[in-house]
Simulated scan of single mutants.
Amino acid sequence: MAHPRMYDEDDPLLARARQVCLALPEAQERESHGRPTFFAGSRVFAQFGVAGPDDTRLLVRPDDNDREALLHHPRATVPPYYGPSGWLAFECRDLPGEPEVDWTELAELVEDSYRRVALVRMRRALDARG
């Protein structure tokens, strides 16, 4: 049985997440478990939405050395199911009383997650960009 679609195709935050994720060498998007999921080869490096159709978090797997510090980030949460494997979810929408989303910072987190699973040629292509 196929999973129901858990996102709005016209969501501007999804468009921004796509822009960040698909800028990486050979990155691909496929729907998985009803959510936009980003792959480097056959391995997942990011997913938009974690818990439901209105979820605007971006799921990434940071470097193990950075994870502890990132747990204190105001936009970070430990997602169910994925959290025990090292994944974190970062809120992409602006929150009342918080600074605006830093998309440069999110792009760095996505790149770190990508590097964890990307093939050597993909990492070399990324490094060649400068």
Rank of each mutant, 00 (worst) to 15 (best):
residue 111 E to D: 05
residue 96 P to N: 15
residue 89 A to I: 01
residue 111 E to A: 12
residue 111 E to M: 07
residue 81 Y to R: 07
residue 87 W to R: 03
residue 86 G to C: 05
residue 112 D to L: 03
residue 102 D to R: 14
residue 100 E to P: 09
residue 112 D to R: 11
residue 91 E to S: 13
residue 84 P to V: 07
residue 88 L to T: 08
residue 115 R to G: 07
residue 118 A to M: 07
residue 117 V to P: 04
residue 98 E to S: 12
residue 98 E to Y: 13
residue 92 C to K: 14
residue 108 E to D: 13
residue 97 G to V: 13
residue 83 G to T: 02
residue 86 G to K: 05
residue 81 Y to H: 06
residue 82 Y to C: 03
residue 119 L to E: 00
residue 87 W to P: 04
residue 87 W to L: 05
residue 107 A to E: 05
residue 90 F to G: 03
residue 108 E to M: 06
residue 99 P to G: 08
residue 108 E to L: 02
residue 101 V to A: 12
residue 111 E to P: 07
residue 119 L to K: 03
residue 107 A to V: 11
residue 113 S to M: 11
residue 87 W to C: 02
residue 111 E to I: 02
residue 105 E to S: 10
residue 84 P to A: 03
residue 119 L to V: 00
residue 115 R to S: 03
residue 109 L to I: 04
residue 95 L to Y: 13
residue 93 R to N: 10
residue 82 Y to M: 06
residue 81 Y to L: 10
residue 84 P to Y: 04
residue 105 E to P: 00
residue 114 Y to Q: 03
residue 82 Y to F: 06
residue 99 P to S: 06
residue 112 D to E: 04
residue 114 Y to G: 09
residue 82 Y to G: 05
residue 108 E to V: 01
residue 103 W to H: 08
residue 93 R to C: 14
residue 107 A to T: 05
residue 119 L to A: 09
residue 98 E to K: 12
residue 104 T to W: 01
residue 102 D to V: 04
residue 91 E to V: 09
residue 111 E to K: 12
residue 81 Y to C: 04
residue 116 R to H: 06
residue 105 E to F: 10
residue 107 A to N: 12
residue 113 S to N: 08
residue 112 D to V: 03
residue 106 L to V: 03
residue 110 V to Y: 09
residue 115 R to T: 05
residue 106 L to S: 14
residue 114 Y to A: 02
residue 85 S to C: 02
residue 102 D to P: 07
residue 92 C to M: 13
residue 85 S to D: 01
residue 83 G to D: 01
residue 96 P to C: 14
residue 95 L to W: 12
residue 83 G to C: 00
residue 91 E to T: 11
residue 105 E to N: 11
residue 91 E to Y: 15
residue 101 V to C: 13
residue 82 Y to Q: 10
residue 85 S to V: 04
residue 86 G to M: 02
residue 103 W to N: 12
residue 94 D to Q: 08
residue 106 L to R: 14
residue 93 R to V: 02
residue 100 E to S: 04
residue 99 P to Y: 11
residue 108 E to G: 02
residue 91 E to K: 15
residue 82 Y to I: 09
residue 84 P to T: 04
residue 81 Y to M: 08
